[in-house]
C-alpha cells in the first residue's frame, strides 16, 4: 500500500425514523490507497451506505459521524457543500447499479458526459466533445459518434454502464466507488464491463471501492475484501487468503458458492447469529 488516499475511522450512518433511530453503518473503519477494495455483504448490511457516505450522498435527514473521514488530506465531514461538489465527479467518481435508472432519460449520452467535464473544467465546446468521444472509445464503445447522440433508452444495459463509467471517469478521478456496477447486467455482459473497469483502473492508477453482494466476483477482482454484516465490518482480509476466512459469516458466504461437479443437497442456508450484529 503506497500513499493513503482515503481514511475511514468509525464511520456511522444513522437514519431517524418514526420508531426510533436505525444505524445502517455502525463503526466502519478502513484505509485505502491506490488499490482495489471490495466491500461484500448481503442487502441491508450497510455496504452501499458506506460508499454513499464517502460521496456525501446520504439523504439529508440521515446523520453521519466518524472519528476520521479523510480523503487526500481533506476532512470530508468539515468541508463546505461547494468543496464537496468539487470533489465529486472530479476526484471521486461513482458508478451506480442500473444504468436504466442512473442516466437521465431525457438527455443525450453525449450531453451527460460533457456535463461532468464542464462542471469541473473550463473547456471549449469542441474540446469537450473530442474528449467525450475519446472517453467513449476508452470504454470500448465502437461507434462513439453515434452513441454520443443517442438517448439512454436507446442503448443496452451493458452499453449504458460503459457510458456511466465514461461519465464518471472523464475528469480523471483518483478514486472510483462502484456500487454493484454489474448486478443489473446479463452475466455475459458483466465480464465485459468488469474487464473495462479493470483496465481503466489499472491504467490510471486509481483507487477503487467495489461494493457487491457477490463474494466470488469481488475476491477475483479486488486486492482486499471487507465483509460487512449488519452495519459492521466482520472481517477484512486479502483476496488471496479468502479460504482462510475466520468469521463464520464469511465462511457461510463462501459455502454458498456452488462448486461445479459436486452435489449440493440440501442447499446450504446462510447462518445468521444475533451476536454477530452486536
Amino acid at each position: 500500500m503506497s500513499e493513503v488516499l482515503l481514511t475511514v475511522d468509525d464511520l456511522r450512518v444513522t437514519f431517524p425514523t418514526r420508531t426510533g433511530e436505525i444505524e445502517a453503518v455502525r463503526g466502519v473503519s478502513f484505509t485505502l490507497g491506490r488499490e482495489r477494495l471490495g466491500i461484500v455483504g448481503e442487502s441491508g448490511s450497510g455496504k452501499s451506505q458506506t460508499g454513499r457516505a464517502i460521496m456525501g450522498l446520504t439523504p439529508r435527514h440521515a446523520k453521519i459521524t466518524a472519528k476520521t473521514l479523510n480523503f487526500a488530506g481533506r476532512d470530508l465531514l468539515k468541508i463546505s457543500d461547494k468543496e464537496r461538489r468539487d470533489i465529486r465527479g472530479k476526484r471521486i467518481g461513482m458508478v451506480l447499479q442500473d444504468p436504466k435508472y442512473s442516466l437521465n432519460p431525457v438527455m443525450t449520452i453525449g450531453r451527460q458526459i460533457i456535463e461532468t467535464l464542464r462542471t469541473h473544467e473550463r473547456v471549449s465546446t469542441s474540446e469537450a466533445k473530442a474528449r467525450t468521444l475519446a472517453m467513449l472509445e476508452a470504454v470500448q464503445i465502437r461507434d462513439p459518434e453515434r452513441v454520443f447522440s443517442l438517448y439512454p433508452h436507446e442503448v443496452s444495459g451493458g452499453m449504458g454502464q460503459r457510458v456511466m463509467i465514461a461519465m464518471m471517469l472523464i475528469c480523471g478521478p483518483e478514486l472510483l466507488i462502484a456500487d454493484e456496477p454489474t448486478s443489473a447486467l446479463d452475466v455475459t455482459v458483466q465480464l465485459e464491463v468488469l474487464g473495462i473497469l479493470d483496465k481503466l483502473v489499472a491504467e490510471r492508477g486509481m483507487g477503487l471501492i467495489f461494493v457487491s453482494h457477490d463474494l466470488r466476483l469481488v475476491s477475483s477482482f479486488c486486492d482486499r475484501v471487507l465483509v460487512m454484516y449488519a452495519g459492521r465490518v466482520v472481517e477484512e482480509l486479502p483476496s488471496a487468503d479468502l479460504s482462510k476466512a475466520q468469521h463464520p459469516y464469511t465462511q457461510g458466504l463462501l459455502n454458498c458458492l456452488p462448486v461445479i461437479g459436486s452435489d449440493r443437497h440440501p442447499l446450504p442456508v446462510l447462518d445468521r447469529q444475533k451476536e454477530w450484529a452486536l
Binding site: I87, K90, M94, Q97, V106, M107, T119, M167
Partner: peptide
Amino acid sequence: EYVVAARAKGLSETRIIWFHALRN
C-alpha cells in the same frame, strides 16, 4: 437514481433541480 448520479457528478443542487429533475 439519475439524481443521485447527477450529484455524484458534482453538479450543483440548483442545476440538478431546475435542469435535470424539472426537465423530466
